[in-house]
């Protein structure tokens, strides 16, 4: 069961990383990146490295996600040229 968990986690990490790099749609890429951050926090927790899991949860899931979403908003607005 532990093996299944780890294998699934590893696969999901690779897959989400690949999707966030390869998808042409920016929203999807950012969402996949946030997902990747969360999975990474789980992976660190699984590796008995709660120090890094904590930092990853705070920086990866909280700050970076918000930052990317913000950039996405600025970018989308500029490209669409709309002012809601």
């Amino acid at each position: 069961m532990n093996l299944a968990f780890d294998a699934l986690l590893a696969l999901a990490l690779l897959w989400s990383a690949w999707r966030s790099l390869a998808t042409p749609d920016l929203t999807r890429a950012v969402v996949m990146f946030i997902v990747f951050g969360l999975l990474m926090a789980l992976a660190w927790a699984r590796l008995d490295a709660p120090d890094i899991a904590l930092a990853e949860a705070a920086i990866g899931a909280g700050l970076t996600g918000a930052l990317l979403l913000d950039a996405l908003g600025a970018f989308g607005k500029r490209r669409a040229g709309d002012k809601p």
């Binding site: 709660p50 120090d51 899991a53 904590l54 930092a55 705070a58 909280g62 700050l63 918000a66």
Partner: peptide
């Protein structure tokens, strides 16, 4: 135990954001 300035700073930063 795990914790310290980096993690605490990140949480504070989130508060500022």
């Amino acid at each position: 135990r795990p914790g310290g300035a980096f993690q605490a700073g990140a949480v504070l930063a989130a508060a500022a954001v």
